[in-house]
Design a protein around this nucleic acid. Structure first.
Length: 574
RNA sequence: CGGGAAGUGGCGCAGCUUGGUAGCGCACCUGCUUUGGGAGCAGGGGGUCGCGGGUUCAAAUCCCGCCUUCCCGACCA
């Protein structure tokens, strides 16, 4: 393509509403333009980039035997009501009321794909099967973020597998899992699969593919020793070593009026001469289960609570008049006898005694021991892991990494097929059986931002895209005004095109500085410059922007050399 | 939804404290000179100052209400 034909304009100034480096680069380079918060247009250059990324994603889904489809964005409300997700995902659903009826703009397509495909998968002979699409999703996000990183309208590649049994589902899952690893490598991303929480999609086994990045909205825990990796939501800590604590024998009650909360209570207890250390407080949170039964959740006072599945934290009303729970002074002692279930994080065993609320306003107790003063009904993982916590597999120290989720794979099992009767097939005995399903997502329009973060230069004024995703693999530019340079550039452009490369000829007659400034934003990994030495010595300059190397090459061998460099280029950096 | 910041030609900003008919840089248009790292000179076009109301002889500027955008948090595939 000739730059004079490309509709785009770069800008020098940093856009006022762009904080993230990738966002600045994409706006300055003229890849995208914001229409509303979390709603972006892809301009011609941005579309070329997106087209490349989409092609790679699509190819890898096909390598996993996916059949491409295109499902509607407009879903009749009924199909969402049928799975209960109309209510469950109400917060993110865009709703449309029209004379044609009531619709939801699809945020994901489990329901829609079953409606579309189930009639063609009526027999066990039709299984296994996989379909996928690249399609626009709509989610009414509470907050859009970092340009393309989190938007309200975005393209996702979503795949769905249908199998006759669990074993088949697992095989399909592994096939996609491996396709994802190839896909992200081609995209220039070091994506690591981590164990994750299934969220509102549902199902059992699932992995998130995470890329360490400054624009990450998530963290995952990683063990350098054994390779354990899990999203912070799903990560669990191993066994903590037992803490050294002061010798205390009995239980002592202290009067601590006006001291709710861990830190104030510790201070109040110290003032009274209690032998408490800063880690002595047991945090006791009141939660209710799905049936509305109350429970107490116990964690070390310095830790953050992770509310377990099936429970929600109790609201203020639980502390009302006549309640057995005393706000700010809740403790486990005697609660079981009053019919309150006690759940505890295993880490509370790593200490001989605790200080805790005495279930009386203005009173704490010190020296409370598990099994002597109270019993735990159930040990569950209730704490959010922190840097340095022991690994659950090998007890080495966990490390937290800020990261972006670029893909997510789920073994759904029978989650959807059990509630949608037509999501089923007839087995060899003639009996109707539900599909064993898997679903797989890749955040396609997020990828330009994530890739840019990895390949961007200082000050967000330059990028060198990985060869497979680059809108142009190589750019040709003439330096100076000589006719020889312009001729050489034109001939090289034709030659590189003929070799099947994606080539940009800079033909706008810009000064050299302007031309190079723009090229740095357009991001070709290779640039060929035809300057004064073409006429004098018959050589051009070839730059490898990924490696940062520059070489002088004879005009006649330039095409060969560029192709060599192109083939030798490795997608992943760092 | 809570906290913070900001809305002035296409983009980035000044002007607001102390009301008096809107300015700078970039970009754009014309001409000439330039062209191996973001050129120079001369001339030119373009703005409901986010929206609505109020105060005033007079509002970008003061007052009230609303909207939008970005950042942190909550939430999230």
């Amino acid at each position: 393509m000739r730059s004079s034909q490309l509709v785009f304009r770069t800008r020098r100034e940093v856009p006022q509403d762009a904080e993230a480096a990738s966002h600045q680069l994409l706006v300055r380079g003229g890849y995208i333009r914001r229409l509303a918060s979390g709603v972006y247009s892809f301009l011609p250059l941005g579309y070329l980039l997106l087209e490349r990324i989409s092609a790679i994603v699509s190819e890898e889904f096909r390598n996993a035997e996916g059949n491409q489809v295109l499902l509607p964005a407009l879903h009749p409300t009924e199909i969402w009501a049928a799975t209960g997700r109309l209510a469950k995902m109400a917060d993110v659903l865009f709703r449309v009321e029209s004379k044609a009826g009531s619709f939801v703009l699809g945020p994901t397509h489990e329901e829609a794909v079953i409606e579309a495909i189930a009639p063609d998968l009526a027999s066990y002979r039709d299984l296994p099967a996989m379909v996928y699409q690249l399609q626009t999703k709509f989610r009414d996000e509470p907050r859009a973020r970092f340009g393309l990183m989190r938007t309200r309208e975005f393209i996702m590649a979503d795949g769905y597998t249908f199998d006759a049994d669990q074993e088949g589902m697992r095989i399909a899952y592994m096939k996609v899992y491996r396709a994802y690893q190839r896909m992200f490598e081609r995209l220039g991303l070091l994506a690591v699969p981590v164990e994750a929480d299934a969220g509102s999609i549902g199902g059992d086994v699932n992995h998130e593919f995470m890329v360490a990045s400054a624009i990450g909205e998530d963290h995952f825990a990683e063990c350098a020793n054994c390779g354990y990796r899990a999203n912070i939501e799903a990560a669990v800590a191993g066994e903590f070593s037992v803490a050294e604590v002061p010798e205390i024998d009995g239980v002592t009650v202290y009067s601590t009026p006006g001291a709710p909360g861990v830190e104030i209570a510790i201070r109040a207890l110290k003032e009274q001469g209690a032998l408490v250390d800063d880690s002595a407080m047991l945090k006791c949170m009141v939660a209710v289960d799905d049936r509305g039964e109350p429970a107490i959740l116990l964690i070390p006072g310095e830790r953050t609570l992770k509310v377990p599945g099936g429970y929600t934290l109790a609201g203020e009303e639980i502390f009302g008049e006549g309640s057995i729970f005393c706000k700010g002074y809740v403790g486990p002692v005697g609660m079981r006898e009053r019919g309150v279930k006690i759940l505890a994080d295993p880490s509370i065993r790593a200490r001989a005694w605790w200080a805790t609320g005495n279930n009386v306003d203005g009173e704490h107790v010190v020296g409370v021991r598990i099994d002597r003063d109270f019993s735990v009904d159930d040990y569950r993982n209730l704490i959010v892991v922190e840097e340095g916590d022991p690994c659950p597999r090998c007890s080495a120290q966990l490390h937290l990494v800020r990261a972006v989720e670029v893909g997510h794979t789920f073994q759904l099992g029978l989650t959807y097929s059990s509630v949608l009767p037509h999501a089923s097939f007839v087995d060899p005995e003639g009996a109707r059986q539900p599909y064993w399903m898997g679903c797989y997502g890749v955040g396609v329009t997020r990828l330009p931002a994530v890739i840019a973060e990895q390949f961007i230069g200082e000050g967000a004024t330059a990028v060198a895209w990985p060869v497979e995703v680059a809108p142009f693999e190589v750019a040709v530019v003439a330096a100076g005004r000589s006719a020889q340079a312009a001729d050489a550039a034109e001939r090289l452009y034709q030659e590189l095109l003929a070799r099947g490369l994606r080539v940009l000829l800079e033909d706008r007659g810009l000064s050299f500085g302007n031309a190079m400034g723009d090229l740095e934003l357009i991001g070709p990994p290779f640039v060929v410059i035809a300057g004064a030495k073409v006429a004098a010595e018959g050589v051009v300059e070839v730059r490898d922007r990924l490696l940062g190397t520059v070489e002088q090459v004879a005009l006649g061998s330039c095409g060969d050399r560029v192709e060599e460099l192109r083939k030798a280029a490795v997608p992943i950096r760092r």
